[in-house]
Nucleic acid binder design. Structure first.
Lengths: 131, 131
DNA sequence: ACCTGTGTATTAGCTATCTAATACACTAAG
DNA sequence: CTTAGTGTATTAGATAGCTAATACACAGGT
């Protein structure tokens, strides 16, 4: 699926939440597809099942996942379409954080943009490879 | 100086550390200039003095700041030049995190790059304005 | 000398996170 | 029915980070 980065200060459950969202956005997880069970994903990521459960619950609340109790968890048929304002807001916050660190380490704007482009395409490619 | 973002999962001492580095990179803090005292900056940021002290100590260990005990803290005369490999490594990690969230929220590469450009220039402008 | 402002250190308590170990209710398959 | 596999809930413990309060040693100005 994806990997957990212990060096990332973001909580693990948030990393899982974002990882699932990313897989769906990339098309690796199609609507209706089943998602790994809480225990399986926990074992895969070397993480506690409770942590995975927390991420799944948040995704279910957001309408991204559909929980069939006692049966399993699936990708919701209709993915919620976030308002453009919300999406841009989240992206904007992330951009500010990234730009701040880029400036702090003394990188020019061009270098910062280059790194984003290669990183973006590398993430996409990485998932294409596994498919 | 700068602001602390409580929503950022990064520890406050790390935000302070990066904030100081950013001010130096922007030229707002020249070598030899005095930095706000631990207590003053703590009061300014509405944060505990211990947290500021931790950031200052890390910056002093890294050669970014020079501590004159009992007198004050100053920007080091010779700023350490991080190896290009180190700087690129830090930037690369940040770029991967940013690209991941951009993909997760369903943004195209072009939009992600645009947000970085505006954010970068906005941070720079914001500091130019205060100067 | 005295006092104020430095950085530094220590101790305690709080909150969030993660882990671990169970336990429960539900569904599907044998 | 029994069993295995779901999601879910609870409890306890460990750790990291932040806060608060206090104290110490040093430098500089009065």
């Amino acid at each position: 699926m994806f990997a957990i980065n212990p060096a990332d200060p973001a909580p693990i459950w948030r990393q899982i939440e974002e990882g699932v969202r990313r897989l769906i956005a990339l098309g690796a997880l199609q609507p209706g597809a089943s998602v790994p069970s809480v225990r399986d994903l926990a074992k895969d990521l070397r993480v506690n099942p409770n942590t995975v459960a927390r991420a799944y619950q948040r995704l279910a609340e957001g309408g991204v996942l559909l929980v069939k109790r006692g049966e399993g968890t699936y990708v919701a048929d209709e993915q919620p379409q976030p308002k453009k304002a919300q999406r841009n807001g989240a992206l904007r916050d992330a951009a500010v954080r990234y730009a701040s660190t880029a400036i702090a380490v003394g990188s020019a704007l061009e270098d910062a943009v280059d790194e984003v482009e290669t990183a973006y395409q590398r993430v996409v490619r990485e998932h294409r490879r596994k498919a």
